[in-house]
């Protein structure tokens, strides 16, 4: 690699290219399939609803995609019984 190549790396086009390649590789793979995150969200919600009453807004499901590994983050807030009326009032 020459010094010129190193200099070129500092420009923004190669970054754009890399971001696109990573993103499109994922999007092409998942094309035509229903959205995984929303399916998970729905099913998790259904399971919790069997036992605890929670609002849709208290369940956050998000997926952080990486090159080799993805992280699924599920955040469920179950309000204490005494807090429910407050939360509903708010």
């Amino acid at each position: 690699m020459s010094i010129l190549d190193l200099f070129k790396r500092r420009t923004s086009a190669p970054v754009a290219r890399e971001r696109l390649q990573l993103l499109l590789a994922y999007e092409r793979q998942s094309r035509g399939q229903p959205d995984l995150v929303s399916i998970l969200r729905e099913e998790i919600m259904a399971v919790i609803a069997k036992h605890v009453q929670i609002d849709q807004d208290y369940l956050q499901v998000s997926m952080d995609r990486g090159a080799t590994m993805s992280t699924l983050e599920i955040d469920i807030q179950i309000p204490n019984k005494s807090a429910v009326p407050l939360a509903m009032a708010g």
């Binding site: 070129k8 420009t11 923004s12 086009a13 190669p14 754009a16 290219r17 696109l20 390649q21 499109l24």
Partner: peptide
């Protein structure tokens, strides 16, 4: 702009 690396080049677009 493409030659300065500020814009995706034709090669980039076609390859992607």
């Amino acid at each position: 702009r493409a030659s300065r690396g500020e814009m995706l080049s034709i090669d980039d677009v076609l390859e992607i």
